[in-house]
Design a protein around this nucleic acid. Sequence first.
DNA 1: ATTACTACTCACCGAGTAA
DNA 2: TTTACTCGGTGAGTAGTAA
Lengths: 233, 233
Amino acid sequence: MDPLKIDLRSWKLFFTLYKLAELGASSRTIKVSTEYLSEKIGASQQTASRHLINLEKMEWIKRTITPEGCLTKITSQGVAELKKLYSELRLIFESAYPPSITLEGVLFSGLGEGAYYVTKEGYRKQFMERLGFDPYPGTLNIKLTTEYDIKSMSELEAYPAIELEGFKDESRTFGPVKCYPAIINNKAKGAVIYALRSHYGSSVLEIISPTFLRSHLKLKDGNKVKVEILISP
Amino acid sequence: MDPLKIDLRSWKLFFTLYKLAELGASSRTIKVSTEYLSEKIGASQQTASRHLINLEKMEWIKRTITPEGCLTKITSQGVAELKKLYSELRLIFESAYPPSITLEGVLFSGLGEGAYYVTKEGYRKQFMERLGFDPYPGTLNIKLTTEYDIKSMSELEAYPAIELEGFKDESRTFGPVKCYPAIINNKAKGAVIYALRSHYGSSVLEIISPTFLRSHLKLKDGNKVKVEILISP
DNA sequence: ATTACTACTCACCGAGTAA
DNA sequence: TTTACTCGGTGAGTAGTAA
């Protein structure tokens, strides 16, 4: 059992952990019999017992068995797991924006202009500071095809972005750029950049990344690419 | 499948609902393929499909199937379910106090004084106003036996209570009283009352209720009684 | 590409019961 | 009373596949 990842398998256990928290076990040591717990989780005494055993194995609870029940307290690790769920829900409900939006489109070759802009020191420095990576000199161009994707992309404008300042060099001015951290094909980290005056219409995603994504993800023109855009909280 | 109660059975489905919310389906209609969702929930495409079908049956989501995936939105009912979990977690984490404390003790016969106090109009009126019920003229006395229960009860003092004012009648003064809503033996609604100057030590719970609990719960002296004390938020 | 059916497997739950 | 074992049935997940 992987103690680090909550998935469908451990999720049932997680429910029991949550119910223990409801009984106060996140802040105090509580006495709970397996029979009593079984009523709280809507299962049998045996299931409650097994859940406690497994929760202990995962180090989500600490337990002392007495003849009157188990003195039980959720460990800091267990509390952290619950807090993770709590913060995620807070993000969902307290923020007006969804935590992420996934778009899909088809890879195509741009005019190579992306590389020119990305390597400009004025932008590059900001990418490193604000996104935490040094972009590969080039961009991935994704053409959105369905109505849904285009509509979603246009909604994106209203969501808070990481904004890079424009600057001047000896020859010309460069405008401000908005970007959103993104995950490409569920694997690679990167960012969607959104030039305020783009030469593409609003149906193209331009993506930068610390690596050369075409080789890293084995992508070719015409491939479908999935982009999960993360909205900042 | 009971759409109103989340227990171990529907909890797995609930996990999928939660993941859909993470993808933004609580505020917008999102396009999600069963394959994509399956990655998010850590299960197979078939499982994702079945979960969507069941979520739809429970009216937690509304869905339109297209050849590119499902246009999916969480219904207000589904959002309400998620919010319930969220508020509960907020209570657990944002309040310094546990939502409830469960104590256990043994029923014994008091001196009948409880009845005298409870029926005093000065208290009775406040019980009705602040607790929402007219107390049966009599109290249930529970003697706490284990160290854990006595310790927990003493901690109770620090938690916020419903406070009833003292008053005077023609012959004497009656002191202020603290009380906590409580559930007795997982069934009956009532309240623990906690006279600031009690003639019992701190190892006795005095309980009032709208009904005659001894007959309602078929209790006799010496029976074990479980009292879940609810801490106000 | 999708969704979702039918099998089949297995993990999980609960009954019985020991300690 | 407790906790938690064994064991047997079944509900839930996956593979294969149709539409």
